[in-house]
Design a protein around this nucleic acid. Sequence first.
DNA 1: CGCGACCTTGAAGAACGTCAATGGTCGTGG
DNA 2: CCACGACCATTGACGTTCTTCAAGGTCGCG
Lengths: 259, 259
Amino acid sequence: MSSQGEAVLYCKPLTADILIRRLQATGRLSMAEQEALKTLPFHARSFGSYETIISQGGRSTHCCVVLEGWVARTKISARGRQTILSIHVPGDIPDLQSLYLDVIDHSLTALAPTVAGFVSHAAVKHLIERVPQLAATLWRETLIDAAMARDWVAMLASQAAEGRVAHLICTLYTRLEAVGLACGHQLPLPLTQQEIGEALGLSAVHTNRVVQRLRRSKLLSVAHKRVTINDWQGLIELAEFNASHLHLNASEAPEAYLQ
Amino acid sequence: MSSQGEAVLYCKPLTADILIRRLQATGRLSMAEQEALKTLPFHARSFGSYETIISQGGRSTHCCVVLEGWVARTKISARGRQTILSIHVPGDIPDLQSLYLDVIDHSLTALAPTVAGFVSHAAVKHLIERVPQLAATLWRETLIDAAMARDWVAMLASQAAEGRVAHLICTLYTRLEAVGLACGHQLPLPLTQQEIGEALGLSAVHTNRVVQRLRRSKLLSVAHKRVTINDWQGLIELAEFNASHLHLNASEAPEAYLQ
DNA sequence: CGCGACCTTGAAGAACGTCAATGGTCGTGG
DNA sequence: CCACGACCATTGACGTTCTTCAAGGTCGCG
C-alpha cells in the first residue's frame, strides 16, 4: 500500500454514508446494521491516478472501501500487458473477498484521484459476530460482485466491440446512479480509451473507432470526461444489457429493469 | 427443475464424499463440519445431456451440488445465441449464490449425463447457524467461484483463441485432479467443440482449427472424449495459466503451483 | 444400412490488431 | 503571454485473426 495523504477517522458521516447508501441500494439495512456500520473504525487514504492501492500476490489484512474516485482490479500478464478485470465506483468494496482468501490474485489500481477507506479484517470479523445479519449482507455483497463478473464474462464471450463499449457504459451508469453519482443519463468517466480497451479486450485504436461510431449513430456523446447517453433504449439493446444481475432495489435504475 | 430419476437420500456415503473432498481440497474441514455436512438431507436427481437443471429468471429454493457429470452455467442472448459462463464438475455447488440472491440470472444445463444433489436453502441456513464455521467455509466457496469468474474474464480479455483453449484445458484438469477425477495429465472432456466455442467466445469452426493446431504442436491429444496433455509446461505457458486463483491446498495440483 | 451428431475443410469477407504519424488540449515554466 | 512537452484522441495503411457459409467426411448407434 503506497500512500499520499492519510488520516484515521471514526467514520466521518460522509464516508460511512456512501457505504450505507450502496448497501441500501442492493438490500435493506436494519437500523441495528446501520448503527453497527457507523462504529467501524477505518483509515482513509488518498491515491493519485495510476497509484497501486493493493498489489497482486500479497496478503492483505484490511478490506478497502472506495469512498471517492475510480478503482480497477488489474492483472498484468506474463507478456507485460495489463488487463482490467472490473471497475469500481464509490461504495464498492473491491477486495471484500480478501476476508477469506489470503492470497490476492490481482492488484487494485486507482484510475483517477481516489480516496479509499481501509477496515481491518479483525474489525469486520468482530462486527459480523456481533451483528450476524451483517454477515449475510456482506456475503450477499460478494455474491453480487460475482454476478457482475459473470455478466462481464457473458459480455466478452458474446459481444463484438460495439456491444462491449455500450455494455460498459450501461453498467457504469446504472451503478453510479444507484449511489447517487449520476443522473439524467449523464455520467463522469475518467477512463482513457486505452483503459476502456484494456477492460474490454480491445486495442486502443479499435476502441477509438468504435466510440466514434457510437457517437455518429447518436447513441452517446462525450465531452470533458463526461458521457451523455442520448438514446438509453438503443444503447441497452445494442449492449443486450440487463441490470437484474446487479440486484438493485426496484426503485433505482428504472428503465434498465423493463428487460 | 425438470426431472428424470429421483430419490431422497440422507447422504449416501459416496455423495457426501465428493462434496467433502472438494471442500477439503480448498480448505480444512474440522470433524464437526464433516459430521454436520453428512446430516444434510438432499434429493439426488439425474439429468440427461442438455437437460435444464435450473432455468434463468426463476427463484430457487434449493442449492444444487454436482455429484456426477458436467454442468454449465448458460445464458441465452436476445439474438438466440447461447453462451457458457462457467463449467462445473463434481463437488461444485454452481448455484450456492441463490442462497442470498433470489433471482437467478442464468440457467444451469447438464453437458453430459449428470447427477445433481438438491439441498433446501432452509436446511443450509439451519446448518450454518448450528455450525458457524461452515458459514465461513461456504462463503469462501462462493469467493473462489468469483475468483474463477475473474480469471475467466482475464482469459477472454487478454488471450487469443489458442491461449483460451489451452487455458480451459489447464483449469479443467487442475480442478478435476483436485477431486480425484483426473490424473496423469489425462482428463475426460465430454464437451463438443461447439460448446467449447460457446464457453470461449469462439465459433465452432475456429475452435476446431485451433484444437487441430494444438494437436499438431504436440501440446495435447484427443481421443474418445478424453484429452491427454502431452506438454503440461508448454500448455501452461501458452495459457498463461496460474492456479493460485483456485485456492487449492498446496498438496494438490503440483506443477501448476510453480510460478 | 442409414441416419444424426460431430468433426473437418475451403473460400470469402468482416472484425480487429499493429505500426506509425498527426493533431488537440492542458498545464507548466520561461 | 507564449513555447514547450506530455498525454490523449485520431487517422491511414496493412496484415492477421476470426466468422460465416457451404460442403464433405467420420463415427456410433438404431
